[in-house]
Design a protein around this nucleic acid. Structure first.
Lengths: 341, 341
DNA sequence: TTGAAAGCGCTAACAG
DNA sequence: CTGTTAGCGCTTTCAA
């Protein structure tokens, strides 16, 4: 069942040796054009396909790259994957996608699994829970090419691709300020994530520049990135329980935005309805006239750039010592309530 | 760089033969417990990992399964992928995801690529453009296990997993009727897709049962599944141009729902705003109080079931001649406008 | 220009 | 209980 034709079969059929066939197939210069033509013709006819597994074994290369994200059912990441795929395929690689669901344990498992599966390199966006990086360091030290995107770890000498989180956060906060809000809460992601720190910095910057005092009590972290709705609910309930409730919330991520809106819908009332602005790549938001302006990251492009760099690393003949930190711009999408829909 | 330890290394270090080590590692019964312990200990210490590629070559098995969907940035499919992943990983398989973007050519490419990559089996949800199935038939005939999900092809003797599209469509249409709408248009997917036919049947059934005449002019197809927004725009503009405009629209898919809302937002006006109901697995919709009730498919479960069946096929010792067509239930989610948000 | 042989890492039939 | 041998499909010296 399903036994494809091999180089040996061709050799036998054409009365040649396997090595000659191999050479003909890889278009070696030192081969009789006549023979080459015969081999190619026969291969074509019997639609011979190189066995990539044998090739991998021989060349110690799998032509596949691993991708580690928290979840694919997330606008930002699914768009990023589109970008990753586009570059990977163009270069003859396929991608193996794994999801951490923002759990450290699953991240460790997945990365081990990928390394074990002998991928040629890995693209990582860290899980919200990750604070120990040994599982990644070990592989990196062993020579496995790794590129971070979105959720970066700075302690590793490799390429990093992110978006301008600080400025995005600043724009969002500034946007709320311009709309007249003053008591702006911040629903933040897990505290150790790179994006959390950067977005927090942007939030602070906007407030400071506008002479609004920063109150730590207005900032709440979601240690699991909102992968459990309960923690988002708790955060929102906390905001709602404050003596002086926030008039608006700057939300740090796609996942949290959805979670935050859900929680507000659940616990809020007509009398109190904070404005919301935050990071999100969801297209669906465009359809509604909520008071939810968002910061959009160039997800597709980030995926492309990260993959491009990873393949560079993989295919480089010599060890690469210079590493880029690439930061792409973010975009504010203002949404005005009260229009159609 | 990155040269992992092999069975030979262990053999040498322990003064054993490679086969003994291999046996010890695979916990063969016919091995001295003492030796086994030594080998295991050494392997553990030097964190030996089986080379899966060598294993694949030997066993003609890659422990990976290919997945073909139109796009991951789609609530239904990303949820289905979650389900696929959960079962695949539990059984030691990893998944290679490819996107067709609803193009026939890309589907052919991707499937070839997967077969070529020697996956052990493929899960397919057809592209909207596909009308010729030779590329799939060929592989199936050659013995490659294939399971269809969601967008089925009936001409192949294999397992198929779908949701109750007919009844889902009927519920949605019935829902519109109950809300008082009478001129209900149908924005359909590509005509040859299984889901299109089934959903159309449900739509017709609801109308008929309610004594509403079926008018073909009220039905418009999107031949590329809405992967190009222009075709959705055209369809909506057509509805808007009708002498007697539809008072509501039943939309056939997730992608089309988004597209339809987008188009209406673009071309509609306050005076005319049709009600909409349709298939969608988007969680975001729950957050808004649009007049958009939706039919939700059990995406995660569909992914699980399909993968389970595929692995059964893969691991079956004997050819399987009995094939299931599994149909899972759909759910109507009513949304009432005018609430919070 | 072609062939023979070795080897990538692993398993399995066979022999002891 | 353990070792020898062969082979999965392919590439690549080395020799002819």
């Amino acid at each position: 069942m399903f036994k494809p034709i091999t180089i040996k079969d061709i050799a036998q059929a054409l009365n040649l040796s396997a090595s000659t066939v191999s050479r003909a197939l890889s278009d070696s210069y030192e081969i009789n054009p006549e023979t080459k033509k015969r081999v190619l013709a026969y291969a074509e006819q019997n639609n011979y396909k190189r066995n990539p597994i044998a090739l991998s074994l021989k060349q110690r290369k799998s032509y596949s790259i691993g991708v580690v994200v928290c979840e694919v059912a997330n606008s930002f990441f699914s768009q990023a994957i589109d970008g990753i795929e586009s570059i990977a395929y163009k270069n003859g690689y396929n991608i193996i996608i794994t999801q951490t669901h923002d759990s450290y344990d699953r991240e460790v498992m997945n990365i081990k699994h990928l390394a074990n599966r002998s991928v040629d390199g890995i693209l990582i966006s860290l899980s919200a829970e990750t604070t120990n990086f040994d599982h990644i360091k070990k592989l990196h030290d062993a020579g496995l090419p790794i590129v971070f995107f979105d959720r970066i770890y700075d302690g590793l000498a490799t390429h990093k691709v992110s978006s301008d989180n600080r400025n995005g956060a600043k724009m969002a906060t500034q946007h709320l300020i311009e709309k007249g809000y003053r008591k702006i809460a911040h629903l933040a992601n897990a505290p150790h994530l790179s994006i959390t720190k950067e977005r927090l910095a942007g939030y602070r910057e906007a407030l400071t520049e506008n002479g609004i005092p920063i109150e730590e009590a207005n900032i709440t972290y979601c240690h699991h990135g909102g992968s459990n709705q309960k923690e988002v609910d708790a955060a929102v309930q906390y905001f709602l329980s404050m003596d002086e409730k926030p008039d608006s919330i700057f939300v740090a991520s796609d996942r949290l935005s959805i979670g935050c809106l859900t929680a507000i819908k659940k616990y809020g009332d007509k009398a109190y309805m904070p404005a919301i602005a935050g990071f999100s790549n969801s297209d669906v938001l465009d359809l509604f006239s909520t008071d939810f302006s968002s910061i959009r990251q160039p997800a597709f492009e980030m995926g492309r750039v990260a993959t491009d760099r990873l393949i560079q690393l993989i295919e480089s003949k010599y060890p690469v010592y210079e590493h880029e930190s690439i930061v792409l711009g973010t975009e504010l999408i203002e949404r005005i309530p009260g229009k159609l829909l």
